[in-house]
Design a protein around this nucleic acid. Structure first.
Length: 396
DNA sequence: TCTGGGGTCCTAGGACCC
DNA sequence: TCTGGGGTCCTAGGACCC
């Protein structure tokens, strides 16, 4: 199984681990007993590896499909509108096979006329690998009926805990029940337009478009629990500077600039006897001109951290959130401010290039600290087999 | 002792405008 | 006795996703 950042929660399990009754998203330390007794293999998160393998899978799919929307690290939507319906099944089988052959990553495929239905199909294909060969196409009404009656409301994409509880009160238990509800009912009882969309999607009427992959994020955040608690202002500033630098890097990657910088800190009172009762504070600043320069963003973030720090508290987490994001090619300059020196942008470009081609954090700002006592725990990380020369697989 | 990180979308309510 | 109508924009909070 695989843990979340800081080795906190369990976020991924093999079938064997599930069979032991280890629950999803449960705290790692609470499951240590079963883990040790059953010799469960445990790994810290390893985003270098996951990100790289994810890219390989997506690029494989792009070879055979012009329109791939990457939805998350392990999921994507392909637009097959142009494909004749009698070829869908063969195509899906082929895509599954070629992905596994080229990357070694097993995948399951669901095909239907809306995103929500294809998620239903995908889930069933994944659950019943023997029966479906990992591929399920929902075309005729009988197939759709079967799939929807086998899907509980809480397993529908877009129905969370709150929604599921409400639906049960109305005696709606599976996706077929929900599909047959009226839209005006959904408008009043199921979150307004969100519920209406959901019902339409279940009825095969597309309401959730394919997303343009060039759209830029409206908010960029870097937030982390500390590996060890932080007590001093200088360490807090350091961590916040480091997070700000990361956020600025993400901003530049999507060629944007941000005007609003928000910093938050989460603490436990050092002498509190209450168990896990954190408090938090936040502050934000509006820059005169949108920027993506680490120098500017990190300095501002550090200043905010300074304001938020109080002596005597035990800090356990901090974060930097950038918003008010605009494309960097259309930044509105400020009449009363000096424009940024032209070579600063070039400096950012060089730093980003070095860090992405060598290893991240090869070049950093000193304000982010050297020792980094607060760095997150990752005690059981697997090797970054595909992105680091010194961690390549060794074959004997 | 110990429970992650990073997003999006929608709604209600308040402030404000003419 | 009695005080309009029609908007926009912003923010906080909730729900949801992986």
């Amino acid at each position: 199984m695989v843990l979340s950042n800081n080795d906190g929660c369990i976020v991924s399990r093999t079938d064997e681990a599930k069979a032991l009754g280890i629950r999803m998203a449960g705290p790692y330390y609470q499951n240590k007993k079963e883990i040790l007794e059953n010799e469960v293999a445990v790994f810290s998160s390893n985003y270098h590896l996951y990100g790289d393998m994810s890219n390989r899978v997506m690029n494989t799919l792009r070879v055979y499909c012009p329109y791939v929307e990457v939805y998350s690290v392990d999921e994507c939507f392909l637009d097959l509108t142009e494909m004749p319906s009698d070829q869908l099944y063969e195509y899906a089988l082929f895509m599954k096979a070629i992905t596994e052959q080229w990357t070694g990553i097993p995948v399951s495929v669901g095909v239907a006329s809306t995103k929500t239905l294809s998620k239903v199909a995908n889930r069933l294909a994944k659950k019943d690998k023997q029966g479906t060969q990992g591929v399920l196409v929902l075309q005729d009404s009988q197939q759709i009926y079967d799939a929807l009656t086998r899907t509980k409301v809480e397993d529908i994409w877009g129905v969370g805990m709150a929604g599921a509880q409400k639906l049960h009160l109305f005696n709606i238990h599976n996706a077929w029940d929900l599909r047959n509800m009226r839209e005006d009912w959904a408008r009043t009882h199921l979150g307004g337009v969100v519920g209406v969309r959901l019902i339409k999607e279940l009825n095969g009427i597309p309401c959730i478009d394919m997303k343009d992959q060039r759209t830029r994020k409206k908010m960029i955040a870097t937030t982390r629990m500390f590996g060890k608690p932080v007590y001093t202002g200088s360490e807090l500033r350091e961590a916040v500077s480091a997070y700000a630098a990361r956020a600025a890097e993400k901003l530049r990657r999507q060629q944007s600039a941000a005007r609003c910088i928000r910093v938050f800190v989460v603490y436990n009172d050092r002498h509190s006897y209450e168990r896990y009762q954190p408090g938090s504070r936040s502050a934000h600043a509006q820059l005169p001109t949108a920027t993506s320069l680490t120098q500017v963003i990190a300095a501002e973030a550090a200043r905010l951290a300074e304001c938020l720090y109080t002596d005597g508290k035990k800090y356990i987490k901090a974060g930097v959130i950038l918003s008010d994001i605009v494309p960097c090619e259309s930044v509105q300059y400020n009449l009363f401010e000096e424009p940024e020196p032209p070579n600063w942008r070039e400096l950012m470009r060089v730093i980003d290039n070095v860090n992405s081609s060598m290893q991240s954090d090869m070049l950093t700002f000193a304000s982010a600290g050297i020792k980094k006592n607060w760095k997150m725990r990752q005690e059981m990380r697997s090797k970054r087999f595909t992105t680091r020369w010194d961690e390549l697989c060794i074959v004997r």
